[in-house]
Design a protein around this nucleic acid. Sequence first.
DNA 1: CCTACCGATCGGTAGG
DNA 2: CCTACCGATCGGTAGG
Lengths: 209, 209
Amino acid sequence: MSDVAEGAEQHILTLRATPRRRWATRDKILLEASRLFATHGFRGATTRQIAERVGIQQPSLFKHFPSKSSMLAELAVYDMDVPAHHAETAAATSGSAVDRFAGYVAWDLEWYRTMPFDLRCVTEQVVRSERLVEARAAVKRWNAAIGLILRQGVASGEVSESAVAFVPAVLETLSWHMVYTKDASEQTVDDAVRFLLAAALEPRQDLRH
Amino acid sequence: MSDVAEGAEQHILTLRATPRRRWATRDKILLEASRLFATHGFRGATTRQIAERVGIQQPSLFKHFPSKSSMLAELAVYDMDVPAHHAETAAATSGSAVDRFAGYVAWDLEWYRTMPFDLRCVTEQVVRSERLVEARAAVKRWNAAIGLILRQGVASGEVSESAVAFVPAVLETLSWHMVYTKDASEQTVDDAVRFLLAAALEPRQDLRH
DNA sequence: CCTACCGATCGGTAGG
DNA sequence: CCTACCGATCGGTAGG
């Protein structure tokens, strides 16, 4: 589990450090596929469109990937595996639940803010399609870890009970906000963390003002 | 503008009051199309699947709708036109911005909680595709109205400035939460309203505890 | 609302 | 990585 996450993290960190012009064809395919999936949905994006943007002929895609679905599967692992690993670490650490939650949220939003791929819709596809088992398992682990931290916060009286149901979906929304807001900065991330904490915390626990 | 909204509202209110068994074929088509669009995306859902669920042959769909896109277009208007109308009314009313915002949010979440159609993905399709001009216009009106109320709240010192950017997307998320959470109750709506207000309000203005 | 059917486009293969 | 191409499936039409 951890190895998979670290492998994916290593790869994506390498991608981030590499200027886009020098990306290999395989990674260019993933980038353009993610953008077209985000714009037109998985079925709406065609392999011919992907190939055109990469600058190769459509059948050449299948020298790099066995199928269109396998592109989605690889993107889905990128999307969910590393966050799941971080969330599990935050859930397993000792200390204040709210501090660990705030720390995770800050990492998560920064992760999406600097993500090279546009993975909107990939998450949705993961939830829908019964295939993509690896990515679906990562989503489960992520939800379990976030749920655990939040319930720890409820137990210690810091997190409001009714907020637990809304926080995961809202966190996901804020993550995508960081992706598609072009001028999102580290300040934007800070604001979003405070926004989510204000919603999740019991009012009397919010001593920031 | 108002006539369109009221027409759509009338129609959808009629649908709500009618037991599902008695729905006419045309409305059954819209219902099943919305569910399949939500599950497989617009392109992923096929007209043959829709027809099968309705219990008719695929070509018969086109006796009720000129095209598959026209089903999406009609659903998109249902999705956005009525909320846009309500948001504009809330924005144009006098009184406390926060009270009007809270009132709108409560109405919005209850609207989605009791919605007969599953319109997830329809909103996304509206944002993507350059057609669906009517629905796109409604989205614009909705965003403008919500933005106006929020800026009024910022001006009166009630709403936190950094929250303005996040509230529309988060409200949308909470709306969908009401759709796909099967056991969402009026209590769930109340909790979500409080959750969103806690995030959006300047801390000192939250006098609820 | 049905049967019969069509042109277009899809993901993917063969062979080099 | 290219050209040539294929079977399957798509949205939609014709005619009754």
